[in-house]
């Protein structure tokens, strides 16, 4: 996933195509086809002077996720544990994957590292990031 350098929150010519592609995959029961099958799949949400990133992390305990931010890059890393089975078994389906993962998400603007909130609810990670005070657009008073 890469944002062009001329990124504007209202303009992404391919978002609809990408969304449709992912939705077709999901409806057919395939894992969302991100850039290189990147895990986790992320959604981005824009708010006033803030951005929220949500990611699906099924089976990952909150303690097994590490979220860090630097300038305008958010890093999500962690691991998904494989099921521990002691008995000999016969597999009928093996569709879930496990192991370590790392994902770097390019944000549309620099964020304040001390104002990042992250929580995991029912296997969905939600990170809320804010634009630093000094980067916010300021209204200039016009004197007559």
């Amino acid at each position: 996933m890469a944002f062009a350098s001329t990124w504007h929150p209202d303009f992404d010519p391919f978002s609809d195509v990408r969304r449709l592609h992912n939705q077709i995959d999901r409806l057919l029961g395939r894992q969302a086809s991100t850039a290189a099958g990147a895990f986790p799949a992320v959604n981005l949400w824009a708010g006033p002077d803030s951005i929220a990133v949500t990611a699906e992390l099924p089976g990952v305990a909150p303690d097994d996720v590490e979220v860090s931010v630097r300038e305008d890059v958010l890093t999500i890393r962690g691991s998904r544990a494989a099921a521990t089975i002691s008995e000999p078994v016969g597999w009928h389906r093996r569709e879930r994957s496990h192991g370590h993962f790392q994902r770097l998400v390019q944000l549309p603007f620099r964020v304040a590292p001390d104002r990042v909130e992250a929580r995991v609810t029912n296997g969905v990670l939600a990170v809320e990031l804010h634009r630093p005070e000094q980067d916010k657009p300021r209204r200039i008073e016009i004197k007559s």
Binding site: N22, A41, L44, W45, G47, E56, P108
Partner: peptide, 8 residues
């Protein structure tokens, strides 16, 4: 919030 990018 409004959605600006979606993978899932």
């Amino acid at each position: 919030y409004r959605q600006i990018y979606a993978e899932y």
